[in-house]
């Protein structure tokens, strides 16, 4: 399988704080790569650094063989990377329709087709089409955020804790959608919910204290109680 994204020893500062101190990982085309780790380990910052929202100080980020770490956020997005932040980042005063319209960089046949495909995955969005998105439930906002990230012909989705604050039934729903999307895009997922991470993840990286400390196949991690306990605090 071809490497889609290569993150090479990136370090990131926020103000004077040294948040990322050497994060490296590779994402293969077509899979779901999960970033695991405790709270405050640097997972969210890693995604933000990938998007150029917290620019890296050293290291390199290569997407489809091209260095992207020096690009401004909007150009990184245009390379074909969709981003779903932890707080979903929906625009509360805009309707669902407007949120999607804003995200659509083109209005060609393919984009419209993708939009319809997404709406069929998330029928709720269709129901509340003209409602301000601030009125949606947490799960619906999550769906809108994911829809917004893949309405363009993105090849990579960065999704930050989609299960956060969701009812278990919504978690299952979001999970099934991500599995469905795997056919079209590659996903980097930050997830605390180990059930979700282990169900949909193909391979994983563990980030601890701003460094990638461990990697492997998700199948193996499920069996490895010692590792889970050491880095994730789960028994």
């Amino acid at each position: 399988m071809m490497t889609l994204l290569k993150v090479d020893r990136i370090e990131t500062y926020i103000d004077q704080y040294h948040i990322l101190q050497g994060v490296s990982f590779e994402v293969k085309k077509g899979g779901v790569t999960v970033l695991l780790g405790r709270n405050g380990a640097g997972k969210t910052t890693t995604l933000r650094s990938l998007m150029g929202l917290n620019p890296i100080a050293t290291g390199a980020i290569t997407f489809k063989g091209e260095a992207i770490h020096h690009l401004p956020t909007y150009e990184i997005a245009r390379k074909g990377i969709g981003y779903v932040p932890e707080d979903q980042g929906v625009f509360p005063d805009l309707t669902i329709e407007e949120n999607l319209k804003l995200a659509m960089r083109k209005t060609d046949e393919a984009t419209l087709e993708r939009r319809d495909w997404i709406l069929q995955l998330f029928p709720d969005l269709k129901t509340f089409w003209k409602k301000p998105s601030g009125l949606l439930s947490g799960g619906q906002k999550q769906m809108l955020a994911i829809a917004r990230a893949c309405v363009n012909d993105n090849e990579l989705l960065l999704i930050d804790e989609p299960s956060k604050g969701l009812a278990p039934i919504m978690v299952d729903k979001v999970m099934s959608v991500i599995i469905e999307m795997k056919q079209r895009v590659t996903v980097v997922l930050v997830e605390q919910n180990f059930y979700m991470a282990s169900t949909i993840g193909d391979d994983y990286y563990i980030i601890d204290d701003g460094r990638t400390v461990h990697t492997g196949m998700m199948k193996e991690l499920k069996e490895n109680e010692a590792l889970k306990k050491e880095y994730l605090g789960i028994a």
Partner: peptide
């Protein structure tokens, strides 16, 4: 207009507008 849409969205969340590929 699209410009207006971007302006209204930008008032709420500038980072997200950029993450959607808009040169704010």
């Amino acid at each position: 207009t699209r410009l207006g849409l971007i302006v209204r969205a930008g008032v709420m969340n500038k980072e997200m507008v950029q993450a959607l590929g808009v040169n704010i």
